[in-house]
Design a protein around this nucleic acid. Structure first.
Lengths: 157, 157
DNA sequence: GTATTCACTGGACAACATGCGCAGCAACTG
DNA sequence: CAGTTGCTGCGCATGTTGTCCAGTGAATAC
C-alpha cells in the first residue's frame, strides 16, 4: 500500500490529460513504456485506480440542482432504507455516518421544484424519521484527487 | 441539452467497460464507428462527459477515513475560506449551501486520529465560526451516474 | 561471497485501433 | 424542391497496443 513518486507523477499526468496513451505517458515521464504499463497494471490491481469511466456532469444531463440530505433512520431499518435509496436514480451517493442511525446522501434534481419530488421520493419511506436538506449553491472545489495524490507520493512511502 | 437513447447506451457501456475503444463500442451498440465517434465528440463538447480521468481510491492511497464537515462562515469571509480550503489536499470537495454562510466539505484522513489534524487544519482559520463533522462509516451507494443516465436517456430528452 | 529475485531498460514484432476523408442515403426543414 | 443533418460503410496511412525478449543494476537471501 502506498505509492511512490513515479506512481504519483503518472496519476497526475493521467488526471490532467486522460487521452494520452501508455506510450505518450512513458515519453513524458522519461521512463520505458514497459515500466508505465507495469505501474498501471499494479495501480489497478492495487485498487488505487478504480477505473477510467467517463466523468458525467449531471447538470449537462438536465439535473442542475444538487443537494445534500441528512437522514435520521429508525433503529433497525437501515438495510431497508439503503435498499430503497439505491433504487432512486437521483441519489448519486449514500453514506452512513456517525450519529445514531444517520445517513448522508447526495441528490440531484431538474429544478428546485423537482427537488421537492426527489425529496418526497427519498423520505417517503417508513424507516426515515426526519430529513434535513441543504441545497448546493456553488461548488468552489469540485471533487478532486490530484493534491492528495501529490501529498501521498511526496512525503510518506 | 439532453441525451437520446444511443447516447445513454454509449455512456452506460463506457461506464461499465471503460477500456473498450471506439471501434469495439460501435460493434456493441450496432452502429457505425463514425457515429460513435461523432456522439463522443458531441458529448464531450456538450460537457456531458467531463473527461476520462482515472478514478482514484483515497483509501488505497492510505486515506481510509472519510468525513463530511459542515462549516459556518463569518459574514463576508467566504472567499477567504474557499481559498484556504482549496490549499488543503485532504479537502476533496467543497460546496456552499443554503443557510447563512454554510459550507459542506468532504475530508479524508489517514486514521481517526489523523482526522483530528485535518479538522484542525480546516477550521483553524479565522473566517470559520463553527464546524460539525460526521465520520463516514459505510458507503452503501458509492458515487454513481448510470441510473441517472438511464433515466435521462429513457424518458425525457 | 555468491545466488536469487526484482524492477527497469531498450528493442522488436504482429495485430489492432485511430483519425481522416469520401460517397450514398434517409429524414427533416424552410 | 433544395438544403441540412445524421448515419452508414468503405478505405487508407499512421500510431499505439500487447507481448515477447535479453541485458543491467540494486537489493535480498543463503
Amino acid at each position: 500500500m502506498g505509492i511512490d513518486q513515479l506512481d504519483g507523477r503518472l496519476l497526475v499526468l493521467l488526471a490532467r490529460e486522460p487521452r494520452i496513451g501508455v506510450l505518450e505517458a512513458s515519453r513524458r515521464l522519461g521512463v520505458a513504456r514497459g515500466t508505465v504499463q507495469a505501474r498501471l497494471d499494479r495501480l489497478q490491481s492495487n485498487g488505487v485506480i478504480r477505473g477510467f469511466g467517463p466523468q458525467v456532469d449531471p447538470a449537462a444531463l438536465g439535473y442542475p440542482v444538487t443537494a445534500f440530505a441528512t437522514l435520521q433512520i429508525r433503529q433497525g431499518q437501515g438495510t431497508d432504507v439503503r435498499a430503497h435509496l439505491a433504487t432512486v436514480p437521483e441519489v448519486l451517493e449514500l453514506h452512513t455516518t456517525t450519529g445514531s442511525g444517520d445517513m448522508l446522501c447526495r441528490l440531484v434534481a431538474r429544478s428546485n421544484a423537482d427537488l421537492q419530488r426527489v425529496i418526497d421520493l427519498v423520505v417517503g419511506f417508513d424507516g426515515i424519521v426526519r430529513a434535513a436538506t441543504a441545497i448546493v449553491m456553488e461548488n468552489p472545489v469540485p471533487l478532486r484527487i490530484i493534491p492528495l495524490v501529490e501529498q501521498a507520493a511526496g512525503d510518506g512511502d
